[in-house]
């Protein structure tokens, strides 16, 4: 497992070694060894409380890990917060959306990286509204997101539209790694299809993705590999082509465990 040498990661974009998080006496995440290759889309599945979100929170610096290593893009990293992770190139769409409700779509898409002119004015440099609006239309068209009017403020949008804006924003950053935590949990059929389209676009562009989802059909449709968590441990690492829904469910529920993950303490 740890035959790969540090700084010589080949096509591996993210690796975690023995990643562990304890909340007091609760072992939310225990010894997670995980590898993600460039351009690869991996789904993380598991029951509620299996450690999926905890795993992601350690990677994105939302929480500080108890133990273990995270190696991103060839370097061991220790993010102090999600902003740190974002600067390093990890984009995460969380279940709680990070959008400014009173701003419209282009404003949100370009928040913190506005197109400007007369830059010598420093913080008072002018906004290039026209350019941002055009780029927003391009970005939305590319990802296939349908929003009736981009000048609408976020607060006047449906949950699905908000989610689409958040994901379009993430996708338009061209990050080194995108993480989506249940992006379609609260969405209708059409909106789910839109989000899935964005994910396919990311795949075509060769951008790696970690997708947390409960939706078996979606996972089977979208990703290359499925990693199953149970009780804070990784219990299976399955190629999509070599498995099926029933198999995955067996791992999720604990009916099966892959032999290499069969450690003491996991039943």
């Amino acid at each position: 497992m740890s035959g790969i040498e540090l700084h010589d990661m080949g096509d591996i974009i993210l690796e975690t070694r023995d990643l562990t998080k304890h909340y007091g006496g609760v072992h939310a995440l225990e010894g997670a060894d995980f590898i993600l290759r460039k351009g690869e889309h991996v789904a993380i599945m598991g029951d509620n409380g299996a450690g999926k979100s905890t795993f992601v929170r350690q990677i994105t610096g939302v929480e500080q890990r108890t133990r273990g290593e995270v190696i991103f893009d060839g370097h061991p990293v220790h993010f102090d917060g999600p902003l740190d992770a974002r600067k390093a190139g990890i984009e995460a769409v969380f279940q709680t959306l990070a959008l400014a409700d009173h701003l419209d779509v282009p404003d949100n898409l370009f928040l913190g990286r506005e197109k400007t002119f007369m830059n010598w004015l420093g913080p008072f440099r002018f906004l290039d509204y026209k350019g941002m609006r055009q780029d927003t239309l391009d970005a939305l068209q590319k990802t296939g997101v349908k929003i009736p009017n981009i000048r609408n403020t976020i607060q006047n949008m449906s949950g699905g539209q908000r989610q689409c804006v958040a994901i379009a924003r993430t996708a338009s950053f061209h990050s080194k790694l995108t993480i989506m935590d249940e992006p379609t949990a609260a969405l209708g059929v059409q909106e789910t299809a839109q989000v899935e389209n964005i994910i396919r676009t990311l795949k075509e562009q060769g951008e790696p993705l970690i997708l947390i989802s409960h939706n078996m059909r979606q996972v089977m449709d979208l990703v290359d590999r499925i990693v199953v968590f149970r009780r804070g441990r990784i219990v299976a690492n399955l190629n999509r082509d070599e498995t099926d829904g029933q198999d995955v469910v067996a791992y999720i529920t604990g009916a099966k465990t892959q032999p290499e993950y069969d450690v003491e303490g996991v039943t």
Partner: peptide
Amino acid sequence: TVYGKHTYAIGSNEDAARM
């Protein structure tokens, strides 16, 4: 200006602005 946009953004959702 960027100043104005960030002022609105911080008032609207400070966490989003920070992120």
